[in-house]
Structures are given as C-alpha cells and as structure tokens.
Design a protein around this nucleic acid. Structure first.
Lengths: 110, 110
DNA sequence: AATATTAATCGTAATATTGCAATGAATAAA
DNA sequence: TTTATTCATTGCAATATTACGATTAATATT
C-alpha cells in the first residue's frame, strides 16, 4: 500500500531511511553538490545549473530544507540557500554508523 | 511525471541516488543491519525478525541483491543471504565522496 | 502606481513504491 | 509418491513521488 510501517523499526533505522530517501534523487544530489561547491546559491541559479523547471527545483529545495540539510534566507526578490553545516555533520555521523559496520570478520558464506 | 531525468545528471550523481534510494526504506536498513549482525541469514528468519510478510521481505531482498549489496545462495529449501563485502566497500567509498564534502571553509551565509 | 523579477504554492498527470494474498517452483521428509 | 517447507513470482490496491503549467505573493524597479 505504499506505506512504510515505521512503527515496527527503530528510531535510527527510520532516521537513516529518511536521510537516504532525500538523497535518492539525482537532482537533490546535484543541488547539494552545487551548494557545497559555491557555498551559497539562489534558486534561479540552480534552475539554470540543474536544468529542471523552477517549481520542480523549488520542491526539491523544500524537502532538503524540511530535513534541515540546507538553510534558506530571503534577500529581496531572491532566496539564498546554503548547507546547514551543523545538521550535515550530524547526518553524516548517523549515516557512517550504518555504512561503517564491521566487515573485517565476515566470511563470504554465499 | 514521477520519472527521474537521469540523462541530465552525472553518472556519479545517478549512482549515489540509486544506492541512497535502496537505503530509503527502514525495512531494507533493518535487513542489512541484521545481515551484518549475524553474518548469514535465511529469508524466513528475516520474516520473523522484521515482521513483514514473506513476499514483502522477498521483494526487498531482491532489490538489495539487484544492486549487488547482498548475495543469496540456495541451500536445500532455504536460501542463505549475506553481505557482498566487496560491493559494500565500493558503495561506501562512493557515498563517502558525497557525504565527506569539505565543510571547513564554509561560512554560514544564511 | 505600474511593471518586472523571483520563488513558493496549487492542481494535475504520469510513474514508482509498498504490502500482501494467492500461486508456483523446488527441495526435503514421510 | 505424497505431503510439508521454503522462497520467488504474479497481480492488485493503496499510497507516494516527480514534474510542470498556472497562479500567487512578495519585493524591486521604473
């Protein structure tokens, strides 16, 4: 039914899934990489950079902002976006706990 | 239209998005954590462990296998699954390139 | 005030994902 | 051979996501 049963998983499993989900679209990956590259960016520049329509980019930015990975500041008629460094660091630590699971003592059983 | 325009993104951006997408559901996160924890597991055990129906677990396993993150071996009537350590390491390196982008010289502009 | 610029929001269509019951295939056990 | 066990596959319904045109809101410019 297209509905993840979050109540049967741990908080951490749900948190990892939420972060991963937002990275699960190349446009959002590209937006974040560009924000890292130039430190600060307005929505219109991202529209030119990425090549999707303005409402589409705006929606992706909304999701990134909702998860706290970016900040947005109104500056006149434009909006300045940048990485939320504190939250990015926290997210990275959570993801690393998942990605860095001990693999050294694994025998390839299959 | 619910269709990611992969042709407008780099191979790496698409690859990151594919890996992230498969981590974007807590059941798959839980499956992988359990496989790491006990090294090897049959499908039926995962059904008991996770609490979803057998066809649902089977489908999640299929996606993980399709991306090469796990291996599956038939052993009589049961099927043994385990982490594909080589591919896990490769995936981790790709994800780290994305997660570990330099944050040190960032001024919080917003 | 009138117009231009910028970005969010709304509505809608197309596609994807999730979950499970039912079924099928394959081996094991009797 | 018959029955049980285990897991994959199919088909379906419910929900989510993606993308964009049209519109709206807000500030800037003239």
């Amino acid at each position: 039914m297209g509905l993840a049963k979050t109540e049967m998983f741990t908080d951490m499993q749900n948190e990892i899934a939420l972060f991963a989900k937002v990275f699960g679209h190349p446009a959002r990956v590209a937006i974040l990489q560009h924000l890292f590259k130039i430190n600060s960016c307005v929505c219109g520049d991202l529209v030119n950079e990425i090549g999707l329509a303005q409402p589409t980019i705006s929606q992706h930015l909304k999701e990134l902002k909702h998860l706290g990975l970016i900040k947005g500041n109104v500056e006149g008629t434009s909006v300045c976006y940048c990485i939320n460094t504190d939250n990015w660091t926290k997210m990275k630590e959570t993801m690393l706990q998942f990605l860095d699971q001990d693999i050294s003592n694994k025998t390839d059983c299959c």
